[in-house]
Computed example of a mutant assay.
Amino acid sequence: MTHKCESCGMPIENGRYCQYCVDETGALQDFDTRFGRMVDWQLRERGGDRAAAERDTLAYMATLPAWKDHPRVKGAV
């Protein structure tokens, strides 16, 4: 049975976070690292300008358990 990564929403088999959201020790990456990578992914997949990608990423992160209470996410939505 799969569920979603609490950091990015990707389907995963077990654990709270997917392999892309953790560091080499298995800990969740810091906000700036994860935010930057999610923005870069959105720009690669959907194009558009960086400001829109950052705004959309913050809005999406507000729906995820790992980030919904983070000050940068709460301050943006």
Rank of each mutant, 00 (worst) to 15 (best):
R55I: 00
I12F: 01
R16H: 13
W41R: 07
E45K: 05
P71D: 05
K68C: 15
D23F: 11
T25E: 08
E6T: 12
G48H: 02
A66I: 10
E45Y: 03
S7W: 14
V22A: 11
L64I: 13
F35V: 04
G36R: 09
C8F: 05
R55E: 08
T33R: 14
C21H: 08
E6S: 11
R46Y: 09
C5G: 06
A62E: 02
I12W: 02
R72K: 14
E24H: 03
P65L: 10
A76S: 15
C21V: 06
E54W: 01
Q42D: 02
L64P: 01
G75W: 00
P71G: 05
E24D: 13
K68M: 15
M1F: 15
C21E: 04
M10G: 03
K68T: 15
D40H: 11
S7E: 13
D32K: 01
P65I: 11
V77W: 01
G47L: 14
K74Y: 15
P71I: 05
V73W: 00
D49I: 04
F31M: 01
W41Q: 04
M10K: 10
T25P: 01
K68G: 09
D49A: 07
H70A: 06
A66T: 07
Q29E: 05
E45Q: 12
W67T: 12
G26W: 06
M38H: 03
R46Q: 08
A27N: 00
L58T: 01
E13R: 05
A51H: 09
Y60S: 11
P65S: 07
